[in-house]
Amino acid sequence: MTLSLEWIDEREGGAGEREEAWMELLEKLLRIAGEQEGVTKGIVTLTLTDNEGIRQLNKQFRGLDKPTDVLSFSMLETVEDEPEIRYDDEYETVETDEGDEEDDAEQAEAESTDLSDPFADMIGDIVISVPRAEEQASDYGHSFERELGFLFVHGFLHLIGYDHGDEEQEREMFAKQEAVLAQAGLTR
Rank of each mutant, 00 (worst) to 15 (best):
T2F: 08
L5K: 02
L5D: 03
E6C: 15
W7F: 06
D9F: 04
D9P: 06
E12N: 05
W22E: 15
E24K: 11
L25G: 12
L26P: 02
R31C: 06
I32F: 05
Q36F: 04
E37S: 01
V39I: 11
K41N: 09
V44M: 06
V44K: 01
L46F: 10
N51A: 15
E52G: 12
E52Y: 11
R55P: 07
R55L: 11
N58Y: 03
F61T: 09
F61K: 06
R62L: 06
R62I: 03
D65T: 12
V70S: 04
V70W: 00
L71Y: 03
S72M: 02
S74I: 01
S74W: 00
V79E: 14
E82M: 11
E84T: 11
I85L: 15
D88Y: 02
E92M: 09
V94W: 00
V94C: 00
E95T: 12
D97I: 13
E98C: 09
G99C: 03
D100N: 14
E102P: 15
E102H: 13
Q107P: 11
A108F: 09
E111D: 15
S116T: 02
D117N: 15
P118E: 03
A120L: 07
D125K: 07
D125E: 10
I126R: 02
V130R: 00
V130F: 06
P131G: 14
E134I: 13
G141R: 07
S143W: 03
R146Q: 05
L148G: 02
F150S: 05
F152T: 05
F156W: 02
F156T: 02
L157N: 00
H158K: 01
G161H: 01
E167V: 04
F174T: 12
K176F: 03
Q183Y: 06
A184P: 00
A184T: 01
L186P: 00
T187W: 04
